[in-house]
Computed example of a mutant assay.
Amino acid sequence: VSAAYQASDHPAADHAKAVMQVAAAGTGVRVSDGSTNVLPVGPTPQVHEAWRLHYGLTRRALARAYYQGWDMHPGHLPTRYAAVYTFYREGLEQAAARLAAYVAKAGGDVMDEPATAKALSSYLLRGIDCGALDTAEVARLTGLTRAELDAFASPRRADLTVTAP
């Protein structure tokens, strides 16, 4: 990719990250999104444009399940913080309501199953762990304790017993 088009949202970068994400799935290895080389320096309009770019790329990465990223400049930290907090704050109520409905075995307009309950609880836990969500707030919305969220996020595998016919 020529230098003018090198970016974390380039189709080649997206493909490479998707291949790594699939290869690492279930292994415990975390895939990290890359950085942007556009720095928030110079005149105010240039800084604001760099921040808009970085914020958008960070939100894009989070939506694509890249929950880790790295930054090349301290000036990226405000937009990383804003993007991460916004991502978890915006999804809190829906994720909490879906998880609470799943636990209550309540019907609704979405049919969730154990893998989705794991994803919902993992989302809420990541939000708590980064400080965007408060444990008490999540407990109030879901009816679940931190330990119960952890149990949904990392269910233990049942011992498998094979019986000969």
Rank of each mutant, 00 (worst) to 15 (best):
Y66C: 11
A13P: 02
M20T: 05
A7P: 00
A18P: 01
K17H: 09
A83L: 04
S121T: 14
L57S: 03
P11R: 07
A3N: 06
E90G: 01
A63C: 06
A119C: 15
A106C: 08
A7R: 15
V84G: 00
H10A: 06
A4S: 08
A12W: 15
D109L: 14
T27F: 08
Y85C: 00
S121A: 14
A117I: 09
A115E: 12
A119P: 03
V31H: 02
S35L: 08
W51R: 14
H73Y: 05
D33I: 05
A97E: 11
A100V: 05
A97Q: 07
G34K: 15
Q68W: 11
A100R: 13
T116D: 11
P45G: 08
S32G: 10
P11E: 03
D33C: 15
A115C: 13
P11Q: 03
D33G: 14
Y81K: 06
A106G: 07
P40Y: 03
A13H: 15
V38I: 13
T36Q: 06
V47Q: 05
A18E: 07
A115Y: 11
Y67N: 04
K118Q: 12
G56D: 05
Q46W: 08
A23T: 06
R30L: 13
V110H: 05
L92D: 02
G75D: 14
R60S: 03
H54M: 13
Y123C: 11
Q46A: 10
R64P: 01
V84M: 13
M72V: 12
T116S: 13
S2D: 09
H76R: 08
S122C: 14
Q46I: 12
A117L: 12
A82T: 02
A23Q: 10
V22P: 02
N37T: 10
T86W: 01
R52E: 12
Y123G: 06
A50T: 00
V41L: 15
G26K: 13
A106P: 00
P43C: 01
L57D: 01
R80H: 03
P40V: 03
T86F: 00
G91Q: 03
M20Q: 10
Y81G: 02
L124V: 05
G69Q: 04
H76K: 10
W51N: 06
S8K: 14
R64N: 12
T44K: 14
A96C: 15
A23P: 00
T86A: 08
Y88Q: 02
A104W: 06
V110D: 03
Y66V: 07
E93M: 12
A12C: 11
A24L: 07
E93C: 05
A4E: 12
L57Q: 07
Q94T: 13
G56A: 10
Y67R: 05
V38L: 09
L92K: 08
H10G: 03
G69P: 03
A12S: 09
S2A: 07
D14S: 07
K105V: 03
Y5G: 01
A13W: 14
Y123I: 04
A3G: 03
R59M: 14
W51P: 00
H76C: 09
A119T: 10
S2F: 01
R98N: 09
R30T: 08
R89Q: 15
F87D: 01
A96V: 02
T79G: 01
